[in-house]
Structures are given as structure tokens and as C-alpha cells.
Write a protein that binds this DNA or RNA. Sequence first.
DNA 1: CGTCCACCGGAAAATAGGGAGG
DNA 2: CCTCCCTATTTTCCGGTGGACG
Length: 353
Amino acid sequence: MSDSIDTRTPLQLSHLPAQFIGREAEQDALTEAFGVDEDSRLQNYHVYGRRGTGKTHLLQRFLTTFPPTFTTCYVSGVRHDTQYKALERLYQLLTGTSLGTGHHVADIQRKIKDQITLPTVVVVDEVDFLLLNDGDDLLYYLTRLENTAVITVSANRSTLEDAVDDRTYSTFQPQLLTLNDYTTNEARQILADRARKALQPQSLERAALTYITETTQNIAIAVTWLREAAETAENQVTQSLAQEVEVAAYHKYVRTLLHRFTTHHRRLYNTISRLEQVEQPPFTTGTVYREYSERCETAGVASLSERRISDFLTHLELLDLIEATYHRGGSRGKTREIRRVNWNSRPGSEETG
DNA sequence: CGTCCACCGGAAAATAGGGAGG
DNA sequence: CCTCCCTATTTTCCGGTGGACG
């Protein structure tokens, strides 16, 4: 990497740009709905948008707009995928002390309730992972707290109406906010804005940006890709360089996504990748599992049960890393047909599919 | 109409650990 | 330290599914 290229903060995924390109309308909608500046109107929201559409940034930014007369909490359903973990996290945010494991859920619920004195906004990001476990009970509890607004965030469900109990939804009743995919134009502006702050003016070829943002509108992928290219570049990020590092960049994106999961999740994903190099997808669950077990054996690691791996496949599906068509029965039995998701939206650039 | 495929996915149990009170 | 209550992770168990095929 050359000295003329600065790949620090603006090209990190966690970087919150000063200007939030392309989501002004959604930001205004939330601000207005909550009446942050005037009389506050707490209300529940469900925010939906595919991966890399700025949901997390939108809400983290939104939470910072509240004055100190509010309490705001951000909880990730990936890191806190059970009611207990989410509540423990919430308690930690409210009091600064962590409880550890071993307590009664009802006790923590009571403690949290006692802590809530100011109007409180709780963002539950990646809510789908909670809903795989007992997230329903969490939402039931949260939506029944007084003086509290709940904002759920999902990359998979545009509504939670049929994902939670009626008793939960009846008090939840969220406003719906959908973030559409960025256009290639918006994606290019966002990337250009970050590049401008991180890179020397001449070190980025315009065509490289165009190539990246026409390939993917997922900003998380695009930023990872640009950073990968910048780190590889001698002195300029060109289109051909972007093409060269395309696969490596996507792998890097996958690694960051799977970072918070177990080694078995990563091994499972790698198993499917390798299967695709040998054989035409899709693969049934059994095929994937047998291959996974073999890889475990080769690595000298105990393999998890098929039941467990079935759940992990669902995780990969929620992460939009694989897609599965479900067969509820029939001649081929009850199974899933699994293939990796093709990240690139260029028509006909790979084999037909 | 019965059987079979090839898992799904719910439920319970096994295992390993923590916290509070006596 | 013991007991009894929790949680977390994973395994074991098993009924259920719905087209094809005999």
C-alpha cells in the first residue's frame, strides 16, 4: 500500500459519515414522528431494509439526536440472541453494571423497569436472530414497558405481524419504515464521499467506483471492496484492480459478517463454497452436512449434530449468505436446497443462473 | 391407497456453568 | 460448601410432510 492512500476511518464499516447521503427522507420521517425537538411522541417502529442499506447507521445516528432528557439503547440481536442476553445488555446500558448469567429473567425485567425513569427508546437490531429463540417474549415485555418506544430492525422481514404472537403484536403495533436499495447513483455518491476523505484525489479511478457500485448496492460490501482495493493498490485504484480483488473483497465481507458467529458457522459456509467448486448447486441439507462432517474430521474437530447445523444454515440464510428453497415434502422428501447467494447484480456476468 | 423419501423443526434432556442464601 | 434456582449450548428423539410410484 502506498503512502498516498489513507485507508483509515472513512473506509471502515463502523465509520459514520458526517453527511448521510440518500437517507435524508427516512431520517426526517423518524425525527418528525418522534417530535424530538418539540413534545416527544414515543412510538414503536419496525425498520426494514436489505443488508447494506444503512439501517444500523440510520438508527445509531437517530439515537444521537435525542437530548439528555431521553434514554436511548441499542441492542444487536446477533450478539444478544435470547431474551436473557438482550435484557442483560439493556440493564448494562441503563446502569453501567453487568449482571452476568444465572439470574431470573423476571428479576432482570423488574430491575430494568425500575431503572426507566426518562422516556426511553430501545433499538433492537437484527431482530430476526432473537425471534429464532425467545425474542417474542422480549418484545412482549418491552412493548408493555411504560414510557418506552421499541424500534425493531430487520433485513429479512418487512413486517413482524406474522413473526410474533398476536398478544405481542397487539401492543407493539409499529409504524413501518422501509429502506429501499440504494440506486447505483446513490451508492457511487456514498462511496465517493468516503473515498474523498480517505484517498488522495488522483489515487482513485472514476471507473473503479462505477464498476463497484454497478456490481453491488450493498454499501457494506462496496466499502469493504474499495478498502481492499486501496490496500492492494500500488498508487491508484483502477477498474481492473477493482475487478482483480472482487472475490477477495467479498470473502472479506463474509468474514466480517461471520466474525460474531462460531467457527462452525464459518466452517459450514466454507463447506458450501467448496462444494460449489466441485459440483453444480443446489445441495440438499444432507449433502452439506455430510461434507461438513468430513471437513470436521479432517480438521480433527468434533462435528455438531445435524439438528444443530440445520439451525446454523438458517443463520447463514438470515445473513443473506446462502439461499434455500424449502421442500415441505414430496418425492424428494422434506429438505432444503441450498446455494450461495450471488452478491453481484450484473446480469449474465457469471454462468447462467 | 399405501409406502417411501429425507429431512424439518418442536420438545425434552444432557451437560456445563453462575448467583444467592443458608 | 451445599442446595436450589437459574442460563447456554448441544444432542437425542420423533412425529410430520406431500408428491411419486407401485
